[in-house]
Design a protein around this nucleic acid. Structure first.
Length: 457
DNA sequence: TCACCTTACACCTTTGAAGGGG
DNA sequence: ACCCCTTCAAAGGTGTAAGGTG
């Protein structure tokens, strides 16, 4: 078994500087997205964020919260989140670090969470921070609630999409831009592996207040099941050690408590504990202001089908060889959102580059869209009418009212054989390239490709 | 035996309805 | 009728512990 750290050292990806500009916010064209609670995210990221996934669905903590600027105030936008695998590996927690435990399992059905306010004018999105609090993660591949389906012991990171569209159905003809934040990556688990993460969650999550040391639960904890199984004892032992190390009466900090938060962060840093240590160092360097170019590194505009101007090379993004370090690879993967000027499409003129073939309703002040060619987003958002009318989660595998010409099976994930990857892309993520800018001649053809094709390899 | 998953549980926050007062 | 505030109960989000599964 090769540890992450070891694997990292073997990876010969782009220099760290390529991603050190990862900021809490970055610009993409005119649109700027900022991650809220970046310190909290970093605190978790330093240790190795874990997110519980359950059958009924579990919220994320920290939850995804961003703020936007640079939108056209009167134009309507839809905000979406999906989860992207960090790499093609499965992990296991061994004592105090994550280790690669084999190849990743086949991706579950693609799911995308649509912010409940969608669609809303740019002014709405910009007036306050946007919370994806109600986004839920599940490991139930048969989930009917529309939660985002993930595999346990796999690493993911959320990817945010800003789509200018009047309604969920016109999304497919719209320009969308996507944003990722390195510090939001996490490992999906069914039970916490790292006791430090557990402690952080308890300390920060108001719903877990009952488990805080100074809480009223002391009695309950003391009374309940004084003896544990050996396995539990093992964990408890570690937990106790943790408590000795970084717990003090007052060490528990409030969710918003900045000072205490910082104090905690420093404690964590000192321990140099994170299994993603190398990443952490890179991330932490982003505290300093970065230039716009650096900000652009993680963002990426998508225009589907892509205009000729956008021929992004995504080799770095997901073309991970199994011999590469998972976590460093993931870094390199992010680089794909990276500083390659030619790789980041120019933000099109909102006035001229968009058009809606089917207007579901007149827009009061949105610019008229002029389409150079058909932009079919059947492959972007596939949903049922009920889901569309009730923003929440889009199941890519669900039949699209606009995709009647396409079989449902398209979301099952065309194999590489069916849609051979472009020469410069690995087979694993062949379709990624598709939605990243490969031009297709007609709507029907396009609709066969998923937007969030990571899950369709 | 082990690693991982599922479930029930107690504790807690959040949410929204109901009621009262101005 | 409307608005604001307080109260309260229900709903639902937490991690824990124990048992289940392969």
């Amino acid at each position: 078994m090769q540890s992450i750290r070891e694997l990292k050292s073997n990876f010969s990806g782009p220099p760290p500087t390529a991603i050190t500009g990862a900021p809490d916010a970055y610009l993409q064209g005119n649109i700027r997205m900022t991650l809220e609670d970046p310190n909290l995210w970093r605190t978790f990221h330093e240790i190795g964020t874990e997110m519980i996934i359950t059958k009924p669905g579990r919220r994320m903590f920290p939850h995804c919260k961003v703020s936007l600027s640079g939108l056209i105030p009167c134009a309507k936008y839809i905000l979406l989140v999906d989860m992207v695998p960090e790499d093609a590996f499965r992990y296991k927690w061994n004592k105090d670090k994550w280790e690669v435990a084999g190849k990743a399992e086949p991706q579950p059905p693609c799911r995308t969470y649509v912010h409940p306010d969608s669609p809303a004018p740019g002014s709405h999105w910009m007036k306050q921070s946007i919370s994806f609090l109600k986004l839920k993660l599940t490991n139930n591949t048969l989930d009917q609630h529309g939660h985002i389906i993930l595999h346990s012991m796999h690493r993911y990171h959320p990817r945010f999409h800003v789509v200018q569209a009047d309604d969920l159905f016109s999304v497919r003809w719209s320009v969308f831009q996507m944003f990722t934040f390195p510090e939001t990556s996490f490992t999906a688990v069914t039970a916490y592996q790292n006791t430090k993460i557990t402690k952080l969650k308890i300390d920060h999550n108001p719903f877990a207040k009952g488990f805080r040391d100074e809480g009223t639960n002391k009695k309950r904890r003391a009374n309940k099941h004084p003896t544990c199984s050996d396995k539990r004892e093992k964990r408890t032992e570690i937990s106790n050690n943790d408590s000795k190390q970084d717990s003090s009466p007052g060490d528990c900090f409030s969710y918003d408590g900045d000072d205490q938060s910082k104090r905690k962060e420093e404690d964590v840093k000192e321990e140099r504990y994170s299994p993603w240590g190398a990443e952490r160092e890179q991330i932490m360097r982003t505290d300093s202001p970065v230039c716009v170019d650096a900000r652009d590194m993680y963002s990426n505009e998508q225009l589907v089908p892509a205009p000729a101007s956008f021929q992004a090379c995504r080799v770095q993004e997901y073309g991970k060889s199994p011999s590469s370090s998972p976590s460093s690879v993931s870094r390199s993967g992010r680089n794909s959102f990276g500083p390659r000027a030619p790789d980041v499409a120019t933000v099109p003129d909102h006035q001229s580059s968009k058009s809606r073939v089917h207007e579901a309703g007149p827009s009061h002040c949105a610019p008229q869209h002029h389409l150079p060619g058909p932009q079919d987003y059947t492959g972007v958002l596939n949903m049922t009418m009920s889901q569309a009318s009730k923003p929440g989660v889009i199941g890519h595998h669900i039949y699209s009212p606009y995709g009647s010409e396409q079989p449902l099976g398209q979301w099952g994930g065309p194999g590489p054989a069916q849609y051979p990857p472009p020469p410069h892309l690995t087979a694993d993520y062949s379709s990624q390239a598709v939605h990243h800018g490969y031009h297709h001649g007609n709507v029907a053809e396009w609709s066969q490709y998923p937007l969030f094709s990571y899950s369709c390899w």
